[in-house]
């Protein structure tokens, strides 16, 4: 399943745009790919665009949150961008608030947020 989620590098930021329905395997593959890309490159930031997701269950949410934590251990900051209203409402109602993850409204804001902390 490796390679199903495209990862682009813009400056020192990795851009992960997930436009397909995320199965457990694809989510796990995404995590591996992102961490491998961090190892390979000198990226200091990750923007994960999840605007294409209409369902995020707690397993996928946990993989996203854990990926951010692992990236942090490797010296990179992460931002999740573009979460849909119904996805946010559903996760919160289940009691999952992703407290240790940073969010932004859209790609621009996500990049801007990281821009403050990452030198170009």
């Amino acid at each position: 399943m490796i390679g199903t989620v495209p990862i682009l590098k813009i400056g020192r930021t990795l851009l992960v745009s997930i436009q397909i329905e995320l199965s457990d395997a694809v989510a796990e593959g995404m995590q591996n790919d992102v961490l491998a890309a961090l190892e390979r490159t000198n990226a200091k930031g990750i923007v994960v665009d999840i605007s294409g997701f209409d369902t995020v269950d707690t397993y996928v949410a946990r993989i996203l949150a854990e990926t951010a934590k692992m990236a942090k251990l490797m010296g990179a900051r992460s931002v999740l961008v573009g979460m849909r209203p119904e996805v946010a409402a559903t996760l919160v109602r289940m009691g999952y608030t992703m407290d240790d993850v940073q969010f932004a409204l859209n790609l621009d804001e996500g990049l801007a947020l990281l821009g403050h902390v990452i030198p170009r």
């Binding site: 457990d24 209409d54 369902t55 995020v56 269950d57 707690t58 397993y59 849909r84 209203p85 119904e86 996805v87 409402a89 559903t90 996760l91 109602r93 289940m94």
Partner: peptide, 17 residues
């Protein structure tokens, strides 16, 4: 509506797992 749809879809996903 989108909120109810996301709710049932997500619950089904959790329970299937």
């Amino acid at each position: 509506d989108p909120f109810a749809t996301a709710a049932i879809t997500t619950a089904v996903s959790e329970l299937t797992r």
